[in-house]
Design a protein around this nucleic acid. Structure first.
Lengths: 343, 343
DNA sequence: ACCGGTCACTTAACCGATTAACTAGATTAT
DNA sequence: ATAATCTAGTTAATCGGTTAAGTGACCGGT
């Protein structure tokens, strides 16, 4: 009769026994703490390799951190479909892995985001959170801060928020984009901006405004439209601009998504983008290269932003000094939607 | 002198003390096990609410499962950018949440996928894994099975694999797509298929072949090309088809990505898609509606597949009978790339 | 020769839950 | 009346690590 062996993984106790030491010693070896002779260390490591021992995660997190970062997917997790978020997540995952961290995903359910986050943090499932689309006076951030939940936000740091906010250099990007439109001869340049709740919105505006005022021009309020974030919002915004007596000859859209909508509106109005009106988007999602005509846009290093977010959040969690961060530069990718001012 | 109170979350002990019972009783109340009077239950729940107590996850998982499912992102996590995967993940996350599970993301690092998965499982971080792009005789599955790691695969279940495989009804989809091309008068219909390593590849072929043989026709081997998965692969495959003496008048591509590549190849050859040659893709990614001309394609319920994967994997983990699964039906979305056979 | 200090460990407490085993009191069965 | 059973709890072991505190051997200094 064969003794049925329960299939289970090796524990630290198994390693200790086999190596003839106490579990403490094994722990010391594995964590590089305590003092252990080279010989003992060797023996322990040998056994660890033999048994393919890997410390149980739950047991570890009971005494320290869970080495897990949390992310809540907006729109019932549908938001992940947007290339912007997808690449950000890729960057996050990658950078986190380099520090031994993993990413826990949660769809946003019935409850509000900060409740889910707080719950995940209080149960010790995650050490900190990434907040997407940071807003001005973001109440999610306020709630999390009050609950003592560490977090970083995607978006410019804003006065009302206690958390670090990381973003692209949208001001610089808007500046070079607008300048390039001016260089092409355009004077009536419009801005289809993000909702003003988003902290990123003002960054864009600042760059846009600077490009105009640096040449002594005025910013025409009628040429600035605050839109939503969807393609339809971009369409509506463009229609609003076209309805004006003196419409724009060039448009800067705060996102590719908005720009796509604007393209639709222009086409519907019988205006040819890239000939009659110049258009610049922001983000450079894959689709941007494949529209007709291909969209001139500001390329955003989304992966790098994801990595920066991970580094910052992990530093926060491990109580190390936060890494310095300068907003990530955008690059103007000139395609076919920009053109000189027609006579 | 005020006693410094360490900021920390309430434990089961705090609840027990405050409610005047033992921790066991609190646990029984919370888990619905044991026997507790209504009065005691009330009191405990009251305290739980007061202290906003939530059981520590690490402590729980030490005794049971971690209630976490794992997913490894292919291509250094870049694969997430593809809408296919993104929506699958959304469906997974959502369905998992309904069972109290969360999704842990890992990018694939230096090590091979099964090693990462095994490590995550052995450390108790995750209970089971979702394997993307299931292959015939998938060695990842073999390794995981050998290591006792529970998993389900995305793709048709294949003879060589021990794990459940969930996929779309690609056979049915290919059947209706090919039939529709035949109805339009086409006779020389080509198939640009996925790599034959993928279990899904054969499913597609079966449907394609059936549509031809059911009307007594032969399947021309020269009109079947095995491609890779990228747009460039689709381009190359189409070029190969065009190089033949009697090229196809209609093409079924196994993915939208491949179809996009095929469109490029056709355009480069001066052939107008949707007039000279009919093309049907598979997947219906968002971009499909926005190409020129918009792509006729088979819509795949990716979210639903994600949900089904979650249900199956959780059943596996909780040792419940696996839910029955029938391959999810595809729907033909007719846009502008299909056309009757030109005279 | 004696003391203090390292070194290289071991022992045992602890993290926060679950749960098997036990107990006292109430109820039912014989 | 006594045993058997049930109810509503409690006690304590346990999961698998980490780490503070303890221990004996060894070394150098006076």
């Amino acid at each position: 009769m064969v003794k049925r062996r329960r299939r289970t993984v090796a524990t630290i106790k198994d390693v200790a026994e086999r190596a003839g030491v106490s579990t403490a010693t094994v722990s010391y070896v594995l964590n590089g703490t305590g003092s252990v002779t080279a010989a003992t260390r060797q023996r322990v490591l040998q056994v660890v390799a033999e048994l393919e021992y890997q410390p149980n995660h739950a047991a570890r997190s009971m005494r320290s951190r869970s080495r897990t970062l949390g992310l809540i997917l907006p729109n019932g997790a549908a938001g992940l479909s947007t290339p912007t978020l997808a690449e950000l997540v890729a960057g996050l995952t990658e950078a986190a892995a380099n520090h031994g961290y993993y990413l826990l995903l949660a769809g946003d359910p019935v409850q509000s985001e900060h409740l889910v986050a707080t719950s995940l943090a209080r149960t010790g499932r995650v050490d900190g959170f990434v907040l997407l689309d940071l807003q001005v006076d973001d109440e999610r951030s306020a709630h999390l801060t009050a609950a003592g939940v560490l977090h970083v936000g995607v978006g410019a740091p804003a006065s009302g928020n206690a958390c670090p906010g990381l973003s692209f250099d949208l001001t610089g990007g808007a500046l070079i984009a607008t300048r390039s439109l001016r260089t092409l001869g355009h004077r009536r340049i419009a801005l289809i901006n993000l909702p003003s709740e988003l902290t990123d919105s003002d960054l864009l505006y600042q760059g846009f405004a600077k490009a105009l005022t640096e040449t002594g021009e005025e910013v025409a309020p009628s040429l600035i439209v605050e839109a939503g974030t969807s393609q339809d919002d971009g369409l509506a915004a463009m229609q609003e601009l076209l309805a004006q007596p003196e419409g724009p000859t060039a448009v800067l859209a705060a996102s590719d998504e908005l720009a796509f909508g604007a393209m639709h509106a222009l086409r519907d109005a019988g205006i040819e983008v890239g000939r009659d009106v110049a258009l610049i988007g922001c983000g450079d999602v894959p689709l941007a290269a494949h529209t007709h005509p291909p969209l001139t846009t500001l390329r955003a290093p989304r992966r790098a932003l994801g990595a920066a977010l991970a580094h910052t959040l992990i530093a926060l969690v491990e109580q190390q000094p936060l890494p310095s961060f300068t907003p990530l530069p955008l690059q103007l990718i000139v395609r076919k939607t920009t053109c000189p001012l027609p006579e």
